[in-house]
Design a protein around this nucleic acid. Sequence first.
DNA 1: AATGAATGAGGATTCATTCAT
DNA 2: GATGAATGAATCCTCATTCAT
Lengths: 199, 199, 199, 199
Amino acid sequence: MTQHPTPDERRPANRGPKAAAGNRAALVAAAREIYAEHGLDAPLSGIARRAGVGQGVLYRHFPDRDAIAAAVLEENVRQVERAAAAEGATLAGVLGVVTWHLAQSAAFIGLLHADGTSGRFHAHACARDLSDRVERALRRCLPDGHRLGAPDTPDDLMLAVAMVSGAVTGPTQEERERRALAAWRLLGITVGPVRPYEG
Amino acid sequence: MTQHPTPDERRPANRGPKAAAGNRAALVAAAREIYAEHGLDAPLSGIARRAGVGQGVLYRHFPDRDAIAAAVLEENVRQVERAAAAEGATLAGVLGVVTWHLAQSAAFIGLLHADGTSGRFHAHACARDLSDRVERALRRCLPDGHRLGAPDTPDDLMLAVAMVSGAVTGPTQEERERRALAAWRLLGITVGPVRPYEG
Amino acid sequence: MTQHPTPDERRPANRGPKAAAGNRAALVAAAREIYAEHGLDAPLSGIARRAGVGQGVLYRHFPDRDAIAAAVLEENVRQVERAAAAEGATLAGVLGVVTWHLAQSAAFIGLLHADGTSGRFHAHACARDLSDRVERALRRCLPDGHRLGAPDTPDDLMLAVAMVSGAVTGPTQEERERRALAAWRLLGITVGPVRPYEG
Amino acid sequence: MTQHPTPDERRPANRGPKAAAGNRAALVAAAREIYAEHGLDAPLSGIARRAGVGQGVLYRHFPDRDAIAAAVLEENVRQVERAAAAEGATLAGVLGVVTWHLAQSAAFIGLLHADGTSGRFHAHACARDLSDRVERALRRCLPDGHRLGAPDTPDDLMLAVAMVSGAVTGPTQEERERRALAAWRLLGITVGPVRPYEG
DNA sequence: AATGAATGAGGATTCATTCAT
DNA sequence: GATGAATGAATCCTCATTCAT
């Protein structure tokens, strides 16, 4: 009654249920780009637009703001976990993967700052969970006497990651990677090649 | 109040030109509090309200969103400069002041991340300028052979500050200070007492 | 579920044409419950969900919002008609059935208020028709000199029903029945036991 | 940043703070009309449009949906109270005023049905309060042995009003008044002239 | 110079309806 | 015939900014 769904006009085409999986993937990919460009507060409408779907589709797949952010991060975290679980994984190698993600997306950085102070990423429980998974993955790679390079406790690990995330600024991926590496160097921690984990 | 705009009541009185300076200070103070509580994205209306002035006054003093943020930071930066210029200033002492500001306000942290990527604080030029002033202040205190504790270049100074800012999370000032200190320790850099500079 | 559309899962299976009748009944039953709980403005999607069918099925059986409401009422009205046609039917007895339906579902009340003024139930013609059928059923039971208890015309019958419907408020079925009975009492009209007609 | 307030285009004119009181009145008047035409669920945007103001103004004056509805009813209720408090007030006279309001606006009817079942008018407390005020006003006019015409308790008063509200349907004010009067007659209760109270 | 009401664009979210499968 | 994903218009609400007073 209150809705006028453009009765007879041409609709832009309904690609059907088959598109569901593809749409979800497109949304996550779009969100990743948008987050990288505009941060976690970017309008959701932009994500839907870039994914080439209607707003409703976004809400069908992700009930709220945090769900889509979590989905984006889920993939990042999973990569870190796989990297840590791989045969012959080293702390340096996994940190390289972590570093790549830090440099690639503001979303990943936001994950580490989800303390509720800022308005972003409200799903504390969820953010906490993702953060914990990164921590567990990294600990698994700690050398036995766990020393990073300087004397340390396991807790220092995530602190170090947070510190590096603070150093990651700059307009380009290259610049951000450069600064991240400089940060690790300042911490006296060796990191492997900065790249995504293609497991 | 919203319910009954009471348009007939006496206007709170125009306190005249004399109030201008006081209003500006009140706005900056209010903004500082609001930023600390809600982050840099907080509604401007809340700042005006807390300052006890109309919205228009805010715009009279600060042409846009970034101007008020810059004004808040101006005071912080000025403190750092004064601390660095004081008789017998040491790098550790000034870093203590910097650390206090980092732990105290999200605004100050935002300053270091003003690369336009995130939605906050767009005034690059302005942010750059403030950031540079902090850098200059810190350099002035560098020991002659400038070594922080580990081998370093002067540029590492601001990188270190950025890194510590990344570590500063948590709901309370105490928690944030604790983490900031842990971060400096991890960098092997000694900092003096964490407190504002009351010059 | 929204989180993981699991597009690869087996579709719940197309139960074939045989299920059509069952689906229709399930939809009507679901609608009856939903209307009772949330009123006539409840989202259609909820009805389909509770019926355990897809949205499309709802639209196959009922072209629009009003059609499903009418279908729900159709059963109520039919009960009233059967009660009135039964051997030894009395006005009091039929009014008891009517009263039960009034207390049971907001939808039935809405029927009497379908004048287009409110946003609910626009199908005037349809509502009119249903309303007329109730009226005819009641008239058939009118005692010969048709007096309800006070002097009256046949038109007063439906007016009285509408009046009682106005009295039917309250969170529970019991409360609503209590008020309905009080209303009839105030009108000086005797009603039989308040219950559905199991013809 | 995310807002484009039509930078340089001509704004439709800001009639200034002086308009505040007028705007509030215009909003209430507009709401009264809209409610009468479309019921309490009508879009708020329509109210703002009819009042000739922006959406924001509506929200400035009325924080939520219920506030504007309450404001509309407030005037109705106040009229009833004044009518009851007037010199020589009679129950019949006050019921005439109540009846006029019932016939005039769906909003007033909704007040009596604010039991939370339907989605309308969520402010129970507020609705309750308004309803109670009507009740108190009517009781004040009850003849000493309180009999309405038939034996009754004071509680029957509001029940009777609710019943009449149920009878009030029809597309025109005249038709609705006609039915309301028929309803009172059926209850054996005498009402005075149906008109607003111009106190 | 101060006030704070007005403006209205924009973002979030919901849901009726269509339609590919 | 059934499924349920897709669509997008419409509504709610917020807030940056302007401007009459």
